[in-house]
Structure formats: C-alpha cells, structure tokens
Design a protein around this nucleic acid. Structure first.
Lengths: 342, 342
DNA sequence: TTATATTTTGTAATCGATTGCACTAAAGTA
DNA sequence: TACTTTAGTGCAATCGATTACAAAATATAA
C-alpha cells in the first residue's frame, strides 16, 4: 500500500533538469562541481528524502560495508563479547557485522568462509574450530584479497593478522599466583594440547614452575574438556594418588568449577587445603559463593583490536599486505578460591 | 597478485558462444531451456568455478538475503541465545544475520532500524530498548514493506508479528511453586512496570496469589533493576519490616542472587526460612553451590520461532500481511534455592 | 511440402550509482 | 579581437544478473 517509491538520483535529476551524473557528483561531495548546483542538489535530495541505494553502490564499487564474523557458537560469553567489541568499533565506520557459527566443525567453517566471500564481505574475522587443521579455505580469502583477522584461536597463514591474548602469560600468572599462595604441588587441567591456546597456557604453567623451582609432577597435568564432569573426574583421578595436589590451575572455568564441586563433596577445604584457579573469567566465576580466581581474556578489547587491525588493513594501501600480530595481556582476577590471605 | 578474476555469466556465454541470457536461464534452472544447453552450461560453470554475484542479483531482485537483528547488547546470554536460534533456523535458507546493538537507547535503535532498511535487509528482528515509547521508526519498516518480528520485548504495532514467552504464566508458575512449598508471605521483585514483560510477570504473581488465596502484601512488591546490589538493598528494605517475607520471587536472576547473598549475610537459611526464585535461567543460576530456581525463557527456541514467523511472512503472499503472535511456554527449573523437599 | 504451433535462444532494457571522456561556456591571456 | 585555459556538465559505459519481447529453430499437423 504505502509502498513508498524509492527515490533515486534519476528522480532528482529529472526534477532539477540536470543529469544524474551531476547529481551523483554533488552527492559525493568531491569532484569539480559548482557550489550552487551542489547545494541545490543536496537541498532537493533532503526534501525528497533521498536515500542512497547501497546495493547499487556496492555493485559498482565492489565494497559492501559488511564484514563477517565466524565463531564456534555465538552464545558463548567469550565469543559474544568479542563480537560486541567488533560491532562497537566498526559500526561508527559504517560497517555491518554478519555472524556465522561453525559449531566447532571444519566443514561448516569452510562453508561459512565460502558464502561470506561469495557475498563479498569486506573482511572476515574468525576464531577457528578446534578441529581445523587444513587452511585451504582460509587461504582462499587471501587469494581473493579479502582481509581476514583471526582472534583468540588462530592459524599460521602468511599474510594474515591476528589478535590473541598471551595465553602463555596467562598460564604463568595463574601458576605464579598459586606458588605465591604457598602451593607446592600444583596440578594443571589443560585442554587439547594440539590447540595452540591450550598448549601456551600449559607452557606458561611449566615455565612458572621452573622459574620458581617448584617441581612439576608429570601426572598432575591432566587433559580435560570444558565440562564440569571432566573437572570432577580429573579430581577423582588426582585424589587417588598418595601424593595429592594442593592447587589446581585449570585452563577451563567449567572444569575448575567441576573440580571445586568434587572437592567439596570430599570435604577438602578451599582455599586452605587446595587453591583453585580457572581461565576465561566466565561470568559465573564471580557470582559463586566461593568466587573463583580466573584469568580474564578481555574479550571486548580483543574484538575492538581485531576491528582496528581490519580498519588499518582496509585503509592502508590495498596492495601491501600487512601481517600484524596483536597480543593482549590477560588479567588475573584473584578471588576467594585461591586467596589464602583472606 | 593472485587476485582471481571473477567469473561472470558473460565469460561463460563467451566461452560457449551463446548469450548471457541463456546462461542465466540455465543457471536458474527454471525457464524453458533445452536440457542439452542447461547441462552444458552447468558443467562449464562448474569447470570455470563460476560463483553468482549476489550483489548484482540483489540489486536486480531487491532481495539481499540478509536479515538484521537489533538487541540491546549482544553479549547478554539471553540475546545471544536468541540470535543463535535465528541464525540456525535461517542459515539453511541462505540468509545471513546482521547484528546491531541499541545499547538500550531509543536513539540508537532508530538509527539501526534506518540503516538496516537502507541496506535493504529482507527482514528485521528486534527486542526493543526499555526506554522505547514512540514507534515511528518501527512503522517505517511497515511502510517499506519489510517484515519485522519482535521477540521478547515487543510493541503493539499493527501488522507486526511477535514471539514472546508467556511472562504472565512464568510469574504464575514461579509463585504457585512457592506457595506449594508452603510459603505464605511472598515478596516480588519486579522490573520497571512500564515494560510489558515485567508488568506481565507481576500480574502472574498476583494472579497466583489470588487463586491460592494467599494475601499479597502491597509493600512486598519492590521495583528493582537487574543488578545484585538492587536485590540486596531490596532485601534490607524488606527485612526492616516487622513482618518478614518467607519467599522472594524476583523477575531478575541477578537481583535474586543479590538477595541470596544479603540473606546469607543475615544468616537467614535458604530455602528453609526463605525460598528464592529468579527469572531468566541465567547460566550462573545452575552453577551456584545453592543452585537457584528460575524461569527459563527458552531463548534459542524463541529465536527459531521468530525466524519461522519471518519465513512464513516472506514466503506467503507479499500483499497479505499476517500478524502472528507466538507465545512460548516458559519452564520452571526447580533448584535448591526453593526446594524444601530435599 | 507448406503452414502452424511450440521450443529454444538472442536482444536489449533494467536495477541505481559511478566515472572517463567529451563538450560547452565562461574566464584569462596576449 | 582571437585564442587558450579551466570549471562545470552531460553522455554513455560499467558493475553482473534478470527478464519481457522478439526472433529463430524445431516439431507437429494438414
């Protein structure tokens, strides 16, 4: 009904008796055009409620002002926070953010990259799926000259930038803190060591142990996944040994929580007998009755930084590929689960 | 460098010595075209690695295959879960999801609606900002014939569909549960009663009280916001009275948690002396040592349903506007904070 | 075999904005 | 006055795909 007819530059040109080219030039505010015509056009355009057709513009220029973000799941606090950062940094520059989920599966990831490239996004942000090994689909972006920025979980692909946190440092900080609490037998719950971030957290743990001359007991390093049960069963496992840990540094907050719950059942006192530190600073960690110490990954900042890297890339000369590796400093939030000085 | 030349239908038509129109028809698989040519074209297209230019297509057809979602903040669990539902339902249909944040501010909301309409999205999903009163910007979508589906927080605009949960029922269920636990003096923490969802939860609370002939004490209804402190101070307030509540139904999980923390400080036993029920089923509620009973809003389902409504709208006849109000049933997750039968 | 119906294909316009090139008119120079 | 600049516009092609209409090719009927 109301079906507003869309106003085009042709409507304006007709109304003013000038060519559409002139209208376009006036609107774009640059070329050589007389002040008089420009003002007339701008005024008329406003009166007629003209709105640029961004599709036509995109077709002509090849620039869509859309970027894509690929994450495993959008409703994980960490990822949605990164996306928030990206959106807030990019939105003032006129970009729209398209979100895609890989469901932690390479096949989906490949599909998503392809459709994003096909819709001609101006850039792609991604945190790769845990299982991603081959990077052919990612290199396609390079081949098509579409900037791609990794965040958190990256792959080493020449020409591509990344924004990550210093997981090694995060692991180091957490472990150092435990050592300073007087802990001597510190266990580590790591994620899949084939995934870079977990490998680095583990390395940070080992480095701190070494620096402070605390013996790292091999069987105290246990691989878990991000589930409560996984942390719980790791604890059962550890407590079956004669020599029991007096601290746990878990690369996952969920596993840390599972561990705490299990320890409670076993009447082990936290933090006096065992200190626990998690990783990610999930919202729940600070709400617990026994708030959990955790390493914060500053996800919103990560998103903002990824966006900035993208903008530099776009605004810089197109031919020159800059490969920028931004590494953010994680922050340790010390809470009751590991604070003996209460 | 590699800068792959994009293959167009003209390249194919040239290679095969036929017209681009024929190629287009073969690709679109519909019109009358000989089987022979179609197969030849499809084969060649595949060989040449042809990819449709979605921009050109969008310009011609006016359909972008993009939809926009406007939420207050994307990194709130509820909203990101709804978005997940929308994405998962729409992605198989070839749609991309663009996300926008209103930051709970009408001015931003207006801006977002406008830029989404300007980029010609095929549809808009939104949960309005708390402060939104005027709906002129929303009616603009109606005027431009762009389907708009509200979820959770809606406005009454003729012609627009919505997917919400039955907040009234949620409030009723929570209150009924408390009554069945034997509670007689049930307090209610409500949100801003100008906001429909909070009004309805409140109404559900009152209705259950009435149905079960439990006296609703006026001063036991307190307006809070979604902050821990707000819940804590509401408790202080309530406990200054001679007659103290023996249950709290909070329309916010955060306020419920704040209340629990305050009650703990006051050495009030939960659930034996006071039962507490929250609303939203935030992830943290189930992780607490004293897990909190809460009303689940089935956000992913809400997103899926909103997407379905949109698809119906799109696929149905364009002229006929269907106004569909989907109301989902909330679910009460009973946990220790209100379960006396432990 | 010729006339007619039916497929199949091509031509050209269209979606809206941008831009190289050409042209006009006004200003500047000798 | 005659000639060169230069500012300001218009023309028309372009970005790629779609589609009404016309034309050609093929099939069917008489």
């Amino acid at each position: 009904m109301a079906e507003k007819e869309k106003v085009t530059i042709y409507d304006i040109s007709e109304k003013l008796g000038i060519s559409a080219a002139t209208v376009s030039r006036a609107l774009n505010n640059n070329s050589k055009i007389s002040l008089k015509t420009r003002e007339l056009v701008l005024k008329t355009a406003a009166e007629m409620n003209y709105k640029q057709n961004r599709l036509a513009q995109a077709l002509k220029s090849g620039k869509t002002n859309n970027v894509g973000v690929i994450v495993p799941y959008i409703n994980r606090n960490f990822f949605s926070s990164v996306i928030r950062g990206i959106e807030e940094e990019l939105s003032p520059h006129g970009y729209h953010v398209i979100i895609c989920q890989s469901h932690e599966d390479v096949q989906n990831e490949i599909k998503q990259v392809n459709t994003l490239l096909n819709t001609q996004v101006d850039g792609i942000f991604m945190s790769v799926a845990k299982t991603t090994q081959d990077t052919a689909h990612i290199q396609k972006a390079v081949a098509e000259n579409t900037p791609l920025v990794f965040f958190d979980r990256k792959k080493n692909v020449p020409g591509l930038s990344s924004v990550t946190i210093d997981d090694y440092r995060g692991g180091y900080l957490a472990t150092e803190h435990l050592i300073k609490q007087g802990c001597k037998r510190i266990a580590h719950f790591s994620g899949d060591l084939d995934v870079e971030i977990y490998k680095n957290r583990h390395a940070g743990y080992l480095a701190a142990m070494k620096d402070y001359k605390v013996k790292a007991i091999e069987k105290f390093s246990i691989q878990v996944n991000s589930k409560l049960e996984s942390g719980a069963s790791a604890v059962k496992n550890l407590w079956s040994y004669d020599e029991k840990p007096d601290a746990i540094f878990s690369a996952s907050d969920y596993a840390a929580l599972g561990a705490i719950q299990e320890l409670r059942k076993m009447k082990v006192k936290i933090p006096s007998e065992v200190c626990v530190v998690g990783f990610s600073n999930e919202p729940f960690t600070k709400y617990m009755e026994l708030p959990i110490t955790s390493v914060d990954q500053t996800p919103v900042e990560m998103g903002r930084n990824a966006a900035k890297v993208f903008l530099e890339q776009i605004e810089g000369s197109k031919t020159l590929t800059i490969e920028k590796k931004v590494v953010l400093a994680p922050e340790l939030y010390i809470r009751d689960s590991s604070n003996r000085k209460l």
